[in-house]
Structures are given as structure tokens and as C-alpha cells.
């Protein structure tokens, strides 16, 4: 792989007062044991926009995403330093109630991971645990979230069937419905379409564009066409650094950095 000058970078700042920032990281470092995987990344994410994180395998984009709602806490030996600012609070501090925070910053994973429960219970399980008992509210929640995730029409006749009987694409959309049932502010998606067929992927992208109305979305993707189709902003990750961050159309038409240009034109990755 070609060596790029890591000091050569362009990160568009969004904290100029004209953009509403939903989430921002400042000098975020992530290390597993001795090895540092993310070398100080500072990015601002605008509210109600879709931001794509792209980069080759091992570029650290997933690691970065998973640290935003502190999913890396569960992996022993992981250390995260720097700030993750959300509503004026540093998510990465010890005072934060991680469980409460994750209700606001939801996540959908690479592998669809519905619970071994019915479709209905998959969606209502966590809200119930958090204290919602009213049946009418739960019923409405199931219908709204399944509609938003584009799954309602296919499953509305049998909400009691096991979620594991659904196809992979349907399972992933159920996972999105489950995540938005928590009414989060921010939705993190870690390569949500990587195991889906092209048709399911297209449906999923439509879903994301609709969700953008109400949610701030950050999505990691391997698929550059996907990033170009759905996102407003794109961050290019390379070997644990964010080298370029800009509006998506600029990244894909006139990138300012050589590494970005090589990546989006398919020279490596």
C-alpha cells in the first residue's frame, strides 16, 4: 500500500454556528492493549444528516463508531481517551450513566442480531425493561417503528412469529425498528448492509433516507456507491486517522487529499 503523509489532511469544521452539531469528538484515541487503533480523531456530526465513515479494512472506522456509544467498554483492555461531546456532556467520562446514554445513541450492527423472541417482543422488550407498560403505547410503537423500517407490510399479519424466521434483510430492518423504538437522537450503523442482497440493501437505503427526517445517522460502509447515495457528509479513514471530512459530493468529485482520491477511485481498499 502506498504511504500517505498523515499530516496532509482536510477536516471540514462544522462548529461555525451555521450547523447544528448533534455529536462531536475531540482528539479521540482508542487503543487495544498496547496497540493504538485510533490516533486522535476530531469530527463534528450535523443534526438530521447522514454521515458516512469510509475507508479500507483496518482503517479504524468501525472502532471509531463503536466508541461513540462506548460499545468498546465491553472489550477488556480497551482504552478510550479524548472527548465525545453530546448535548454539552462528555460521553467518555466516568460520570456518564452508560445505560442511559445508550438510550439516546442507538446502534445497529453488521450482523443482524434479533433476539430469539417474537417480532413484537423484539421491539417492545427494551422499552418494557425501561418501564413502559401501557399496551396501547407498545402496540403503536411496534406499528410505527416497523413502518419506519419498511417492514410493516411484510410482517403485520403475524407479529407473534419468531424474529429468527425472517430473512437476513428483514432481520436487519427489524433491528433498525428495535433501535428506533428507543427514540434515540443518534443512530449508529456499523456496515448494516454488508450481509444483505442488493434488493434488501436498496430498501435499507430508502429507509435511512426517510429516517434522516428525525434522526442523526452515522453509518460505516464499505460500499462507496452507498456512501455516495445516502450520505450528506463523508469522513475518510486511513490507518486509524480521519484524513478527510467534507460534504459527500465534494469527497466523491473533488477530494482535497491524495489518499482520498486514490481510495474513492478504487486504487486501494
Amino acid at each position: 500500500m502506498e504511504k500517505y503523509d498523515r499530516s496532509d489532511r482536510y477536516l471540514k469544521p462544522l462548529d461555525d454556528g451555521q450547523h447544528e452539531i448533534a455529536l462531536a469528538t475531540k482528539d479521540l484515541h482508542v487503543s487495544y492493549g498496547e496497540k493504538e487503533a485510533i490516533h486522535g480523531v476530531s469530527l463534528d456530526f450535523e443534526r438530521f444528516k447522514i454521515t458516512a465513515l469510509i475507508g479500507a479494512s483496518g482503517s479504524g472506522k468501525s472502532t471509531y463508531l463503536r466508541s461513540l456509544n462506548r460499545m468498546n467498554d465491553n472489550i477488556s483492555g480497551t482504552k478510550v481517551t479524548g472527548q465525545i461531546m453530546y448535548r454539552g456532556l462528555d460521553v467518555n467520562s466516568n460520570q456518564i450513566d452508560v445505560y442511559e446514554m445508550r438510550k439516546h445513541i442507538g446502534m445497529v450492527f453488521q450482523q443482524p442480531n434479533p433476539f430469539a423472541k417474537s417480532i413484537y417482543d423484539n421491539i417492545t422488550f427494551a422499552p418494557k425493561r425501561h418501564g413502559e407498560r401501557r399496551k396501547q403505547v407498545l402496540d403503536e410503537m411496534v406499528e410505527t417503528t416497523l413502518k419506519q423500517a419498511g417492514l410493516w407490510e411484510q410482517v403485520k399479519d403475524d407479529l407473534k412469529q419468531s424474529a429468527l424466521a425472517l430473512s437476513g434483510g428483514q432481520q436487519q430492518r427489524l433491528c433498525i425498528a428495535r433501535a428506533i423504538a428507543m427514540k434515540p437522537d443518534i443512530l449508529l450503523l456499523d456496515e448494516p448492509a454488508s450481509v444483505l442482497d442488493p434488493i434488501s440493501t436498496a430498501t435499507l437505503e430508502d429507509t435511512l433516507l426517510e429516517l434522516k427526517e428525525n434522526y442523526t445517522i452515522i453509518i460505516v460502509t464499505h460500499n462507496m456507491q452507498q456512501a455516495a447515495r445516502v450520505s450528506d457528509y463523508t469522513a475518510f479513514f486511513h490507518l486509524g486517522d480521519a484524513l478527510e471530512y467534507d460534504e459527500t459530493r465534494k469527497i466523491f468529485t473533488r477530494p482535497k487529499i491524495k489518499a482520498t482520491e486514490d481510495y474513492v477511485s478504487g486504487h486501494f481498499g
Binding site: 460499545m71 442511559e100 446514554m101 446502534m107 442480531n113 434479533p114 422488550f125 425501561h130 433491528c175
Partner: peptide, 8 residues
């Protein structure tokens, strides 16, 4: 992870 991500 699915459970943790839902704030459980």
C-alpha cells in the same frame, strides 16, 4: 451487544 446497545 444487542442488549447493551438498547441501554440494558
Amino acid at each position: 451487544e444487542a442488549g447493551y446497545a438498547l441501554g440494558l
